[in-house]
Amino acid sequence: MKTNDVILQTTTKVVFFIIFLFSIHIFFAGHYTPGGGFVGGLLTTGAIVLLLLAFDLKTVQKALPFNFTIMTAIGLLLALGTAAGSIFFNVPFFTHAFDDFTLPLFGVTSLHTAMVFDAGVFLVVVGAAITIIQSIGGDS
C-alpha cells in the first residue's frame, strides 16, 4: 500500500532543522539556565524519529550515515575522559575546570570542562535512543 504523506515529508524537511538547531541551543544554554546535554540529545533524537516517521529506515540511514553504537561509545569516552582528566592533576575525579576566555566574535566567554562532558552525554543519548529505535523498527 502506498500512502500519500507529501505533507508530512515536506514539513519534516523544514521542521527537522528547526528542532535540531533548537536542540543545539538548549545544549549550549545548559550551563547556567535549564537545558543541557540530556535534553538536547533527546530533542535531536526526536528530530531523527520524526525523519523516521516521514521516511523509511533506509532513507534515513542514507541521509545520516552514522553508526549509532560507535556514537554512543564516542560519547561515553568523551564523558569519561573529561571526568578522568582530573586523575592526571591529582584532584578528585569529576573536578571541573573553568575560566573566562576572550574569543573573537563571542567576546568574553566562560568555558567549562563540564561542557565537554555534556557533549558526551548528548552523543550517548542520541546514539543509545536511536539504536533502540532502529533495533525495534528494523524488523517488521
Binding site: 553504537t69 560507535i70 561509545a73 569516552l77 569519561l80 578522568a84 591529582n90 575525579f93
Partner: peptide, 24 residues
C-alpha cells in the same frame, strides 16, 4: 593518588567503552 579507590571502577568502564568500537 587520591583517586585510587575509583580505579577498579573506571578501568573496567574504560575498557568496556573501547570494546564497543570493535564489535565485529
Amino acid at each position: 593518588m587520591i583517586n585510587l579507590p575509583l580505579l577498579p571502577i573506571i578501568l573496567p568502564f574504560l575498557f568496556a567503552i573501547l570494546l564497543l568500537f570493535f564489535k565485529e
